[in-house]
Design a binder for these strands. Structure first.
Lengths: 157, 157
DNA sequence: TGGCGCTATATAGCCTGCTATCAACAAGGG
DNA sequence: CCCTTGTTGATAGCAGGCTATATAGCGCCA
């Protein structure tokens, strides 16, 4: 009875995520969209003209990551950043016409991939999978809160 | 009835994978091990002294990725590369004593994390999850084989 | 009002992955 | 024996993540 299941769970998970990203990339490439842009597009399609800060509050990536992603999206002509009249530190992010026009094709690509990945699975399988993934995600969030805060001595005078 | 489930499956999956990697990193950092090293360590602990090519055949990453990972592991004193006597292009990769000594702690870290992630899940949940993940992974592999090979005209003289 | 601390964003530097390409060596055929 | 073709590994350059830190502007309070 093997204790170590030959390939690590982490390895399989990473591989799965990378395969997913690659299939997505294959479908999005002709549109000039990268997988990292998806989250931004998703929220801006719902609510255009917000600041980076607001967008950041909606998305599960760090501020620096978002900043870099927005830079590439600007370079690729998907968003524009105009100064926020109310706060000179901030910029209002808006989608370009091109980005707006892309929505149906991007949605189609996502749907296509979803269908491909779901072949052979029941509705129940999918729900169950998402439920377990959500629960594991919560456990990981907790795990990181419980992080070793240590080094709290040495605060001396 | 929402068709679009608020956050994209891909986004959730990526986030889950990143959280997993981060929790792993938190446990491995004190050992001087990065998450990308795990696969290499895993296989070399089983079978030390193989070439990069052999290792590559075992691992689900591209050759260039492996090459870079090995470079960082060498820099960090975990592996050594000695010339292969049978083939002057190749190097034999061996673990350093430090890397060998690290095995119990790394295994412990992996086990700890596994336990943390599995809290609240039944054995059945875990098995089911892995099964669905494996099946989705296979669907994605198929998806990429079916890739648009296109551009096969224009070969003419 | 002048300065200090907080906040919005950008940048530097790293890890991990990818594709494309190159250099060096191996192996076989003519 | 040499020359072509294949194979092993390294490198360049990019995407997308991260932490840490810098910069600029906002706001408040003394």
């Amino acid at each position: 009875m093997h204790y170590e299941p030959d390939t690590l769970f982490f390895t399989q998970l990473s591989r799965f995520q990378r395969l997913y990203a690659r299939s997505l990339a294959a479908r999005l490439a002709p549109l000039g969209v990268h997988s990292g842009y998806l989250g931004v597009l998703h929220y801006l399609w719902q609510r255009d003209g917000i600041t980076q800060k607001t967008l950041h509050e909606l998305m599960p990536v760090e501020q620096a990551t978002l900043s870099n992603t927005l830079k590439r999206m600007e370079r690729d002509g998907l968003i524009a950043r105009t100064p926020d009249p109310d706060d000179k530190r901030a910029h209002v992010i808006t989608l370009t016409p091109r980005a707006n026009a892309l929505k149906p094709q991007v949605m189609q690509a996502i749907g296509d991939l979803r269908a491909a990945v779901n072949t052979g699975l029941t509705v129940n399988d999918r729900r169950y999978f998402r439920r377990i993934m959500r629960q594991m995600t919560e456990s990981l969030e907790t795990d990181q809160e419980d992080a070793p805060v240590l080094l709290l001595d040495e605060v001396g005078p």
